[in-house]
């Protein structure tokens, strides 16, 4: 297949991975644990949008905010019910707990929608041709939406008090506490932003292919790889890491059978862990 066409698919996939990786890197940096439930938050968002879009017959531009709102609420609820109780314990306990939360969310989706795959719309989209490349309208929407969200995220992180506090806490949680930052408030914002971006990522993933209860779990490795590639606790790094992972996964089709493309993020991760464990931009060490 044409290299440029694969690059384009890589950018689309990379947008989705990037949106997921921002949430993972923020929770990793601020709460100190790898959230194994993040992929299932994405799936949750995708299914909320499915309910809004197909059952309530809302247009997609309204289904998306509904998914975002529900996923943010879910992330805050899980934190209040479960994760908050482990703040004083070793962060590794949070990781194990998040593994359990991941399965709870996935089971809930299975109970509600069954184990099979679903589509948002069975209508076949006609791919447009630009300079010889095939592009579906949905793919343009995904990339454009991601760009808008990245700009909004940048404004939030660099211009607002809470955004700066969030970056400070991801940089050095102890020093942030010593500076009088209200850490619980920053944590709530972290879940809100991570949840919102996860919901959008989930909806985009559903648009790009299909919905299934495992959709988030299957993408989790790519999301983690992107977050580690970008350096833990670094949202900008995670976005770049997302595109690197997405493009590498699609490009791998040139040399690897398609059924093995899920291995590519892992390979990137291993190479990264051997060569430069702190990430491309030297995230927090250790």
């Amino acid at each position: 297949m044409d290299i440029l066409q694969l690059l384009l698919y890589g950018v689309v996939l990379g947008s989705i991975v990037a949106l997921g990786a921002v949430g993972v890197t923020l929770t990793f940096g601020i709460l100190g644990f790898a959230n194994f439930a993040h992929g299932d938050l994405m799936a949750f968002g995708a299914y909320v949008a499915l309910v809004a879009y197909t059952w309530l017959a809302l247009p997609l531009w309204l289904a998306l905010p509904a998914a975002v709102a529900a996923t943010v609420a879910l992330a805050l609820l899980v934190d209040a019910l479960v994760f908050r109780r482990f703040r004083t314990r070793r962060p590794i306990v949070l990781l194990i707990s998040s593994f359990g939360v991941a399965l709870i969310l996935r089971s809930l989706i299975q109970i509600g929608f069954g184990p099979g795959t679903v589509l948002y719309s069975t209508r076949i989209q006609i791919a447009e041709r630009f300079w010889g490349l095939r592009v579906k309208p949905d793919q343009i929407v995904i990339v454009a939406l991601t760009l808008v969200l990245v700009v909004l995220l940048h404004l939030f992180l660099s211009r607002t008090r809470t955004g700066k506090a969030m970056r400070a806490m991801a940089d050095n949680p102890t020093l942030a506490r010593l500076s009088g930052i209200d850490t619980e408030n920053v944590i709530r914002w972290t879940w809100a932003i991570g949840g919102a971006l996860a919901a959008v990522a989930g909806v985009c993933l559903g648009l790009n292919s299909r919905l299934s209860p495992e959709m988030g779990w299957f993408l989790l490795l790519a999301v983690f790889a992107a977050a580690i590639l970008g350096g833990i606790g670094r949202p900008y790094g995670a976005i770049l890491g997302g595109y690197v992972v997405g493009i590498c996964v699609e490009m791998s089709n040139l040399v690897l059978p398609a059924e093995y493309s899920p291995v590519v993020p892992f390979a990137l991760l291993v190479v990264m862990l051997i060569v430069r464990p702190t990430g491309l931009f030297a995230g927090r060490s250790g």
Binding site: A168, D171, N172, L175, A176, G233
Partner: peptide
């Protein structure tokens, strides 16, 4: 040590 926020 670690007395500044390095990425800020």
């Amino acid at each position: 040590t670690e007395n500044v926020f390095p990425t800020l």
